[in-house]
Design a protein around this nucleic acid. Sequence first.
DNA 1: CAAGATTGAGTAGTCAATCTTC
DNA 2: GAAGATTGACTACTCAATCTTG
Lengths: 153, 153
Amino acid sequence: MAGTRWLSDREQRAWRGFLTAYARVEARLRRSLQQNAGLSDADYAVLVNVSEAPHGRLRIFQLGAALDWEKSRLSHQLRRMEARGLVTREGCDTDRRGAEVVLTRAGRSAIRCAAPQHVEDVRRWFLAPLSRAQLDALTDITETVLAHLDAQE
Amino acid sequence: MAGTRWLSDREQRAWRGFLTAYARVEARLRRSLQQNAGLSDADYAVLVNVSEAPHGRLRIFQLGAALDWEKSRLSHQLRRMEARGLVTREGCDTDRRGAEVVLTRAGRSAIRCAAPQHVEDVRRWFLAPLSRAQLDALTDITETVLAHLDAQE
DNA sequence: CAAGATTGAGTAGTCAATCTTC
DNA sequence: GAAGATTGACTACTCAATCTTG
């Protein structure tokens, strides 16, 4: 392994900074969400996506694509959320293999209650210190990385 | 909740882009590391930190601080790694409450084997498409966020 | 056989409680 | 009592296998 091209200091700083910033921000948001609303990040992501969908219902595979989750992860997640009364799963009329996720009244209530605090948390712990230029630079960077990943297959 | 200041489109793009980019890159790196070296991200992080320490040994609480992990997480992680023969835990001479982590021969071998491919993966899936300016902008952004988090307590 | 979805086993991380030494 | 570290119970994610319908 003599020919390995290691990361330069510049590259290390950027990469480790990215990892660390994500981990630290995620930890704060997770604790706040859990304490204030009794929801995990995963719960929140599911509730947001379903509540934003056309009629408050979404095919499971579409939700999986939106979240970019493994299908088994989503299936386990929905089972736990259904057990807690946040969503229901209903069979699909047009394709009998499929199913739809629908928010329950409690699910709608949970996301309505959780969202304002969560948005405030995202501001406080992530967006607040960033200038307009930094914000746009970040969007540019993440979209560059995502486009490059997609282009690789 | 009428007074909630929701995220603007600009803010949403930056924030969701950050989350998505992290998740997608992390997923690729995790699979590659697992398949090529049989290591998890967590294993890799521990091995890197201990191997970079002065004499290849590190107090557990210092490792915890470097990783910014909960102490119970680290304890579980070290127990599993010790069971697999990657590290050992040794009592500390100067403070009998404490312990040190030391890499085994197998642990040193594992990180030596895993590192070149991992560095290449980080390049391929994250650094490659970024310009010098983007790289520095990212460092600036993540350090701004981290400094702001630290300043909040 | 492929697509949509679920299941079970194994591994990981969190929280609260605990133990020992400072 | 606080710091360093461990444990146990619980929840969550991954991988491979499975089931059903297209």
